[in-house]
Amino acid sequence: MKKEIKMIKNQTWLITGVSSGFGRAMTTQLLAQGKTVIGTVRNMTKVQDLLDQYPETFIGRTLDVTDINAIHQLIDELTKTYQIDVLVNNAGYGLFGAAEELSDAEVERIIATDLTGSIQMVRAILPSMRAQGHGRLIQISSYGGQVAFPGNSMYHAAKFGIEGFMESVAQEVASFNIGVTIVEPGGARTEFRYGSAQVAKALPAYEGNPAHAFQTMLNPENGLAPGDPARMASRIIESADREPAPLRMVLGSQALQSTIETLEKRVADFKTQTKLAASTDFPAGE
């Protein structure tokens, strides 16, 4: 029988990428609630205000999530001092452009950041969560982990991949009282869309191609994204106290509608393949 989890009042959260976006919004809300937050950044100057305002409860650490050795060293150091109750894999960025336009270095870097980095953070933290008898893993994905658009192939590759990884891990660790939630936000007014997004060098052959439709989305003059980062951060924080952990959580009405429509089309297509699928089985009795 699964042991009951008692929620901890003085939770300690480890969040990657807290200098901006959802990571920053979650951190400020959690600190205001009296929680302890260990936040990782690539540049510590971007969180100096938090270090000054919350000297007892905000612990800043420099981390590049593409550095696997650094991940393991950081987790080893932290777990000697802190009981980490919640890990939020938030660090990541968007890369736009047709698959052919992307450089090898761009492909490797986004996989290392948005996919491998999250995988290694989970692998590193699991031993301590198992030992303490509880934990919550929150993976910031995107509705782009279910719905694909042209011009965003490698971002989708990373998000589809991390969702499969986390769904599998959720089944592996449930008996240890470790819950997993995959967060699938829609468009939000963060630096992800209006600051940190990277764009591949364009090829003339793709001018006017659907692969470049993202250019309209990235221009704030064409209208801002509907998602409120502060409200989204609140829903993510609240999910850590839900039992059982919600496996997936879509944030944003447009994102939910698009996800439902995509999945319904996918299921409808699968249902047309009944005879095809059965045609490759051995006949009954053989």
Results as ranks from 00 to 15, higher is better:
1 M>L: 05
2 K>E: 10
3 K>N: 06
4 E>T: 02
6 K>E: 10
8 I>D: 05
18 V>P: 02
26 M>L: 10
28 T>I: 11
30 L>A: 04
30 L>V: 08
30 L>T: 02
42 R>I: 10
44 M>E: 15
46 K>C: 04
47 V>Y: 11
48 Q>E: 15
54 Y>V: 09
56 E>G: 01
57 T>C: 01
59 I>D: 07
60 G>K: 00
62 T>D: 07
62 T>C: 09
64 D>H: 02
66 T>S: 12
67 D>I: 01
71 I>M: 01
72 H>D: 05
73 Q>G: 03
74 L>Q: 08
74 L>H: 05
76 D>M: 00
78 L>F: 02
79 T>G: 04
81 T>C: 03
85 D>V: 07
87 L>P: 02
92 G>I: 12
95 L>S: 12
95 L>I: 14
97 G>W: 05
99 A>Q: 11
100 E>Y: 08
102 L>F: 03
104 D>R: 13
104 D>G: 09
106 E>H: 12
107 V>A: 13
108 E>S: 15
111 I>N: 08
112 A>T: 10
112 A>G: 14
116 T>C: 04
116 T>M: 09
118 S>W: 06
123 R>Y: 09
124 A>E: 07
128 S>Q: 09
129 M>P: 03
132 Q>M: 06
132 Q>A: 11
133 G>T: 07
134 H>Q: 14
135 G>A: 12
138 I>Q: 05
139 Q>C: 09
142 S>T: 11
142 S>Q: 04
142 S>L: 11
142 S>E: 02
146 Q>S: 06
146 Q>K: 08
149 F>I: 14
150 P>A: 10
154 M>N: 03
154 M>R: 05
157 A>H: 10
158 A>T: 14
159 K>E: 12
160 F>E: 06
162 I>T: 14
163 E>G: 14
165 F>Q: 11
169 V>S: 07
171 Q>T: 06
174 A>T: 03
177 N>P: 04
182 I>F: 07
184 E>C: 05
184 E>Y: 04
186 G>Y: 12
187 G>M: 09
187 G>E: 05
188 A>Y: 05
188 A>R: 00
189 R>P: 00
190 T>F: 15
190 T>V: 15
192 F>I: 15
192 F>D: 01
193 R>K: 12
196 S>D: 12
203 L>D: 15
205 A>Y: 12
205 A>M: 11
205 A>N: 12
209 N>F: 08
213 A>E: 09
214 F>P: 09
214 F>A: 06
217 M>W: 10
221 E>G: 09
226 P>H: 15
227 G>S: 10
229 P>F: 10
232 M>W: 06
232 M>A: 14
232 M>I: 13
235 R>P: 00
237 I>D: 04
237 I>S: 01
239 S>H: 00
247 L>S: 01
248 R>L: 02
249 M>S: 04
253 S>M: 04
256 L>P: 00
259 T>I: 01
263 L>N: 04
266 R>E: 02
268 A>T: 04
269 D>R: 03
271 K>V: 08
272 T>F: 01
277 A>G: 07
279 S>P: 09
